[in-house]
Amino acid sequence: MVSAPPENLVAHPHVGGAEQIAIDSAAKTYLRRGASPVEALRPTELVVKPGEFVSLVGPSGCGKTTLLKLIAGLDHATGGSVVVGERKVTKPDPQVSVVFQKAALLKWYTVEQNVLLPARIAGTLTKQTRQRAAELLEFIGLADFKDRYPSELSGGMQQRVSIARALAGEPKVLLMDEPFSALDEFTREVLHDELLRLWTGHPKTVIFVTHNISEAVYLSDRVAVMAPRPGRIETVVDIDLPRPRTSALRTDPQFFEMVSAIRSHFSKAGALGGESA
């Protein structure tokens, strides 16, 4: 069940619009003026195959966001490297989309303008991208809201728009940092299924950060269990549940088994400080 260290540093680092992410001893230590440095992430190894869906799960402060930022190029590693496809990450790349915990929609733009913003910035605003954005909005059930402003949408709708924005440019990698943690249970489960359908239709490599163990199990091919002080990946668990996954799975004993297996990793590490799955 626990996957061996990646023997397959794959020869073809991209497959059908998705790219491999190879994290090679990447580490991050924050230096703080007048205080001892924080080892936010110990040297970390992880290879995420093209088109794979991997979750990072762990308690607060275990370096999930830190690792995500290294992959996104939003922060520099203080050791090791991250390679996306064949490109060593040194700065952000539009091929790598990020969805944040807050929807981070610009309130002065309409839903449609927000979704098209990355294309506008990249200078790739064509009929095709507009078409793709319209399809995405249709898919997430927000076609009728394209001329609305973010303040007129519910939290769940806003987060849908921010996912559409991340996917509109057909990125090769999608990084999500607790995208659903601010949503209620019902909306969250609906968005899980939408996300999985979007991912199936347009394969891309996904790294999904969450506090929520069952969310990670439901969505992922593999779950990386992280632990804090210093931040690190404790172990990586394969989720051998069949796809496509549907809500019937949520009550499946096999599903519960996986969830409690991951839970036990946390209790072993003594890290499960009241975190609920």
């Binding site: 996104a72 952000p92 790349d93 539009p94 790598v96 990020v98 981070a104 913003l117 990355p118």
Partner: peptide
């Protein structure tokens, strides 16, 4: 929002 702008280049 700042990180968003950076991430889209």
């Amino acid at each position: 929002e700042h990180n968003l702008m950076r991430s889209v280049g």
